[in-house]
Amino acid sequence: MTANINQLLEISMDEAVLDMATPNPPGEDIQETPEQQKVLCEEDLVGKSASITYNDHLHRLAMYLQLPMQMCNYSNRVTGATCPGKSPFQVTLKPRGTGVALEWFCPFGHRLWKWNSQPLLKFGMQGGDFMLSTNILLSGNNYRKIALLFQFMKMGMVAQSTFFKIQDTYCVDPIEKFWERNRADVLTRLRQKDRVVVLGDGRMDSPGHCAQYCTYTTLEQDSRDIVHIVTVDKRETDRNSVIMEKECFIRTMDVLLQEIPVKEVVTDAHPQITALLNPERGKYKAWGLQHSLDIWHAAKNLGKKL
């Protein structure tokens, strides 16, 4: 079958099919929304500056933002039908821990984009939640006090369960390793001295005779470096809170006397510890230790007697 060439339609250049790709005209490149920033290494989170941002101002800023798409990109997986939703899109703000999440929806309820005010770690944990939890512990603060401060400020706060989970999973072991490494360096330096003077004192978790824990801290006189820390539970002393500090002191001295040349011990006027350091009848009389009272406790004890 032949065709009349004169009757064929003329194909314009716009309809021609070329064997090379024609680039898109300037300004017509398809743009996509950027992905959420993720924490891949320590430098992506530690040392980064942060600010207090009010949710109303953040939501107002998001309302002025224009997404790179003008139509909803949702399509039905079964029928292949596309969503006819057009801009402007609705913006919602959802508080999440110490941060917020902004979401853009089309008029038919399809989510187009989600943006978080904080970088995300593995398993979706927010960077600010992680940094706040770790720094509460490292700075010696109390979770409930910080949570109360955030409540007064009407700011989002890390949940208490999340705080303790982060503490147990990420903080306890590294802190213990750092402490052991730092203590080993201090003991190595103190072993070179002929005479080491240590200062010790205990601290209960609550006043009175109802304390559950006692922490005894020992420092070196010249450098003020902490050389030993021990914590005793009341259950380890037959639930007798009165002898917890004595038990802490015994555990401390049993360790330090084997590690550094302790010649003098400075404590408060605790009668049980004074008895342990008695040069004639005390537990440590064979070591020839000199027992001294620090000037504040000595003055306080003298004032009581007067």
Rank of each mutant, 00 (worst) to 15 (best):
L256N: 05
L256D: 06
L256Y: 10
L257M: 05
L257W: 07
Q258H: 09
Q258M: 09
Q258R: 12
Q258G: 14
Q258A: 15
E259V: 03
E259D: 08
E259L: 09
E259Q: 12
I260R: 01
I260K: 02
I260W: 05
I260T: 01
I260Q: 04
I260C: 01
I260F: 05
I260V: 15
I260E: 04
P261H: 03
P261G: 13
P261V: 14
P261F: 03
V262N: 04
V262Q: 04
V262T: 05
V262S: 03
V262R: 00
V262C: 02
V262P: 00
K263F: 02
K263S: 10
K263I: 12
K263C: 12
K263G: 06
K263L: 05
K263D: 13
E264I: 10
E264L: 11
E264N: 11
E264P: 02
E264M: 14
E264G: 07
E264Q: 10
V265M: 03
V265H: 07
V265D: 06
V265R: 03
V266G: 01
V266A: 09
V266D: 07
V266C: 08
V266Y: 01
T267E: 10
T267Y: 05
T267N: 11
D268A: 12
D268M: 08
D268G: 14
D268V: 13
D268F: 01
D268P: 06
A269T: 12
A269Q: 09
A269Y: 03
A269F: 09
H270K: 11
H270T: 15
H270Y: 08
P271I: 15
P271L: 14
P271V: 15
Q272N: 15
I273W: 03
I273H: 01
I273G: 11
I273T: 08
I273S: 09
T274G: 06
T274Y: 04
T274M: 08
T274A: 14
T274F: 04
T274R: 00
A275W: 06
A275K: 14
A275L: 14
A275Q: 11
A275E: 10
L276I: 12
L276P: 04
L276D: 07
L276R: 02
L276V: 00
L277H: 08
L277K: 05
L277G: 04
L277A: 09
L277P: 02
L277M: 15
L277F: 07
L277V: 07
L277R: 09
N278H: 08
N278I: 06
N278M: 04
N278K: 09
N278V: 10
N278A: 10
P279G: 13
P279S: 14
P279L: 09
P279K: 11
P279D: 13
P279R: 09
P279T: 13
P279M: 00
E280M: 12
E280D: 13
E280L: 11
E280I: 15
E280H: 05
E280F: 00
R281M: 08
R281N: 14
R281F: 02
R281Y: 09
R281S: 15
R281G: 06
R281K: 13
R281C: 10
R281D: 06
G282S: 05
G282I: 01
G282E: 02
G282V: 03
G282H: 11
K283T: 07
K283R: 15
K283Y: 00
K283Q: 15
K283N: 09
Y284R: 04
Y284L: 04
Y284I: 10
Y284F: 04
K285I: 00
K285D: 03
K285A: 11
